[in-house]
Design a protein around this nucleic acid. Structure first.
Lengths: 151, 151
DNA sequence: CAAGATTGACTGCTCAATCTTT
DNA sequence: AAAGATTGAGCAGTCAATCTTG
């Protein structure tokens, strides 16, 4: 290793894995976001919120749970929920057991839009991602990411 | 497949691979960005610009090449380069062959900061990512991402 | 005082329009 | 007219401060 830096740099394989993760994520989320916006006027982050709510019992979740789920700060989620409520896709409902808390609850309109958007999105995920990796790679991803995403 | 949707949903393995990619990317970039900001006052995207310039011949690149490299829009890069120039980490230099174009050129100050930041960043990438995947997974990532990031 | 949620001030990015040079 | 780069307007997110309830 004939260089003067005090840290050893990444080798080609390490670099391919790390920068590949960055570039792949950027390319996929950009393409999927554009697709969803084009077809349904719904940005990817809004889709994610509707996805969590649609899958949750009674179509509702607490604001902070939802923030954790969609990987947003509390305040970021507050503003996103504002926009979705203004669009009539969800409603805020006070929490009975704890008057400090609120639920975000998906509306019928929100569910209807989500059902349509889901077709676009899943077909995009299959076309751009799942169909382009092997069975072994899919397994490898699931296991490695499951370990990496925590901590 | 006894459900009423017109698209079949993702199975557990597909979901683990896809959502795992999203969550892992978010967790890693957040942690690395915070680390770099804390240690050197340098956000991750600024670091990426300095990285490309430091590795480029004569420490310089055209604005549009650089934008492609760091995965930013042209205008986004213009503004980022504004900030880095204001901080004295790089300079804009007119392009002789094509008077429409500009180079971003890393300064000595930029190089010095980058050398320090690189130690922090590489050790973070190793600690949070590379050291937590197996040799086989690293190979798998390199190959799969190389295929996915294009197109 | 701590926890859930929102607000204010700000940063960083995008798209569309524009300016300059080829 | 097309390409390189910047500017204007606006959106979406963050952190720190605040309000309300436990």
């Amino acid at each position: 290793m004939n260089n003067y830096s005090t840290v050893s740099l990444l080798n080609a394989e390490e670099l391919a894995a790390w920068r590949g993760l960055l570039r792949t994520h950027a390319a996929l989320t950009r393409a999927l976001d554009a697709e969803l916006l084009e077809a349904h006027g719904l940005p990817l982050t809004s889709y994610e919120v509707l996805l969590f709510l649609a899958d949750a019992p009674e179509g509702r979740m607490r604001m902070s749970e939802l923030a954790d789920g969609v990987l947003l700060s509390r305040s970021g989620l507050t503003r996103l929920v504002d926009r979705l409520a203004r669009a009539g896709l969800l409603e805020r409902v006070r929490c009975d057991e704890d008057a400090r808390g609120w639920f975000a609850v998906i509306t019928d309109k929100g569910r209807a839009l989500f059902e349509q958007a889901r077709e676009t999105h899943l077909s995009g995920v299959r076309r751009l991602f799942l169909s382009r990796i092997t069975d072994a790679e899919r397994e490898c991803f699931g296991e490695a990411f499951g370990r990496l995403e925590t901590g």
